[in-house]
Computed example of a mutant assay.
Amino acid sequence: MNPLHESRLVSGGYLVARPAERAPFMDASLVPSRLQSASGCIAPIAPDTWAIDWASCDSAERSAAATRFGVPPERLAELIAWATRRFDVDFLWPNVFLTLEAAREFCATFVPADSDAFVLGLALASEDVEDFLQQTAPPPREGETGLHRCLARRLPPAEGGVRLGSEVLGAELGGTFHSYLCNGLERTFAQQLGARPNEHGLFDDHALARQCAAYAGHEDVGAEPVPWLAWVLLEYPRA
């Protein structure tokens, strides 16, 4: 494993997510049957914009999203009230918690004890932070995303997280992630760079993951035209 020391990491916030099943389009010889991801394209994440009362989501969409985390319909209104009250305080657009404590409070309040949901910490290597902040700075009169706000504090991740590996992620201006897996790049990374995912669907060698991220950003690759970087993922106990 590439020896990226935790002191060189800057926190990008915390997500509450569930493991994802390997999709049929993913290479089964490279990608594990269950994987962990910070991309909502790959893994369920809660809460998200559906949990904010003024967001443009219909009731069926809200209910389905909450049910994926074991939240019964009769508690949906309570969850929406909680997320809306905390929005822009410690729950940030579109789905990032500013602190580990806030993510754990959400889990303790709404996620059943037998759920496989977990708290996922996001972090960038310090040398990537300034470039990311410049590329994702909000236009005038627009609010910053949760990722931008968390990274701008330049604080290390909370202690107690277990490092799962590095995920190659492309960040949209709205603060959501695309994963390298969305683009079927696991085969290309293995063939061109010798990078193979670990048991979590992530990369153990962070320096190699950064090479993969640079490759994903090439125009001729055909991935989304967004900033691609290697993000370190850390798993934390829910309590």
Rank of each mutant, 00 (worst) to 15 (best):
S7P: 00
A17N: 03
R18W: 01
P19M: 10
P19I: 12
P19Y: 06
R22I: 10
A23P: 03
A23F: 08
F25E: 09
S29F: 01
S29E: 15
S33E: 15
Q36W: 13
A43L: 05
A43D: 03
A46L: 12
A51T: 03
D58T: 00
D58F: 04
D58R: 04
S59E: 15
A60F: 13
S63Q: 13
A64Q: 14
A66D: 02
P73F: 00
E74C: 05
A77L: 07
A81Y: 00
V89S: 14
L92D: 08
N95V: 01
C107I: 11
A108E: 09
P112K: 01
S115Q: 10
L120Y: 06
L133I: 11
E142R: 14
L147V: 14
L147F: 14
C150K: 06
A152N: 13
R153P: 00
L155E: 15
L155K: 14
A158I: 06
E159F: 00
G160P: 00
E167C: 12
F177N: 13
Y180N: 02
A190E: 07
Q192L: 13
A195F: 00
F203V: 06
D204I: 05
H206K: 01
C212L: 11
C212M: 13
A214N: 08
G217D: 04
G217I: 03
V221D: 02
Y236K: 04
